[in-house]
Design a protein around this nucleic acid. Structure first.
Lengths: 162, 162
DNA sequence: CCACCCTGCTTGCAATTGCAAACACGATGG
DNA sequence: CCATCGTGTTTGCAATTGCAAGCAGGGTGG
């Protein structure tokens, strides 16, 4: 027994940690666990208890549920779009904002799902289920305006990596 | 030494079990744990791991999440916004996508209400890492521009060390 | 060069989980 | 009356968690 499939949870944690750009020790401290233990967890050598998992989630500032799902401790019954439901239920958003968010979210989902197609085409797969009557790109920018004043910087090429 | 706060989880399980009108041994069998252990759990003498908890939840046919919340292993979701929680819990998103969505959502919120309570981020590597500090402005554009294309996985700044 | 600080990893060891076996106590009934 | 089945509980014990120390090695600089 020991460590057959537990790997994914550890990998997931390590991914999240590295994306957050913090060291193992930092996360360990933030989560209140020892560094060696966290190391072992990340490499799938140990199966952390729920408490530890929860603390790690806090340290990473991610949802505990996401971690539990990764760990297989919760049925993945929040599948297609808990997000969509939440967005639609959010009364703080204007209708337009809502549409934009939904649109973006769906496109993100598509992005991930279509990991086979390496097309260099173009076109906007915008297929939102919204009452579409005008493009919204500038909506995005408008939303980002108060955020990022810097502009004119897009280098994004392919470099697809899995 | 005691497991002061864990009491509720055991009581909760016992309640649920009795409501289901099944014996301790029956639930133990259904959950795949030993009867004595379940007994101890119910009385708060033992702190079950997430796995066991999950199995018990299955045996009781109740939501794992409900149990985890009872056990204090999941934050009692008090969401300033359910959307954020949903986004964070969505395992289908890449971390980058998650960040973008969150930031956009927050900027939307700010547009309407200029109140903020934000991210007290800490734990920033001081040495031997990048000095980058701001979020990811152009990331938004990168993410939105193609609207649905494989977003770059490469961070522009990584090693600033010469 | 060695000292220092950072990174992650390996090594024993105390404390804990989780279990099999056996215990207590009550019904049912031969 | 003693056997048998039912409930939940107590008692050791193997296996595991989780940690304090210590190890290996990359940078920086005195």
């Amino acid at each position: 027994m020991a460590l057959p499939k537990v790997g994914s949870i550890g990998e997931y944690i390590r991914e999240q940690r590295q994306q957050a750009k913090i060291s193992l020790r930092q996360l360990a401290a933030a989560a209140g666990v020892s560094n060696p233990y966290l190391s072992q967890i990340e490499r799938g050598l140990r199966k952390p208890s729920a408490e530890i998992l929860n603390q790690i989630a806090k340290g990473l500032r991610i949802s505990s549920q996401a971690l539990y799902v990764q760990a297989g401790l919760i049925e993945d019954r929040e599948p297609p779009s808990d997000v969509l439901t939440a967005i639609q239920a959010d009364t703080h958003l204007t209708e337009r904002q809502r549409q934009v968010l939904i649109d973006i979210y769906e496109s993100f989902r598509k992005e991930r799902h279509a990991e086979d197609e390496q097309t260099s085409q173009n076109a906007r797969p915008r297929r939102g289920s919204q009452t579409d009557d005008e493009p919204l790109p500038e909506e995005y920018l408008a939303a980002l305006e108060p955020y990022a004043a810097t502009s004119g910087n897009d280098v994004t090429q392919e470099t697809k990596e899995g």
